[in-house]
Amino acid sequence: MASTSDNSAVGMPQLDFSTFPNQIFWLAIFCIVLFAIVKFFIIPRMEDIFANRRKIIDGNIAKAEEIRLRVDEIEKKIEEELQKAKSQCDEIMNTSGLNIKEQMASALEDSKIATSQLISEAEGRLKELRDGSEIAIEKISEELASDIMKKITGEKQG
């Protein structure tokens, strides 16, 4: 038997069967109280925390999935827009090429007309000038002839 008065163990206190009823009595109380705490406080609380966390994580995953879908959609739209813009660009390039050719042709035409006009104008003026000079030559020659006549006659008279 473990002595309780002289504070020294004889053999193993664990094998002192006289303490067993006491130990088991307190252990039973301890177990029941602890089980009640586990059952009514710890488990509901932990499950609550866990469920909350699960809910939020699931919510976040669902939201992420939704956002991903939306991103995919937007990407597709961007791709489409890009395709459209490309084809538009091609069209514009083609049509503008034609336009430029047309414009060049018309410009060439215009310049031709303008040059021919200028040429004819110049010819007209040249003709005018030539006509003017013919008259002047006639006048001069007339004057000259009369001067010569005067001189010839005048010398004879004089």
């Binding site: 473990a2 020294s8 163990a9 193993m12 206190p13 664990q14 002192d16 303490t19 130990q23």
Partner: peptide, 8 residues
Amino acid sequence: HPMDQFII
């Protein structure tokens, strides 16, 4: 007394 600590 290594076993003293186990005395009830």
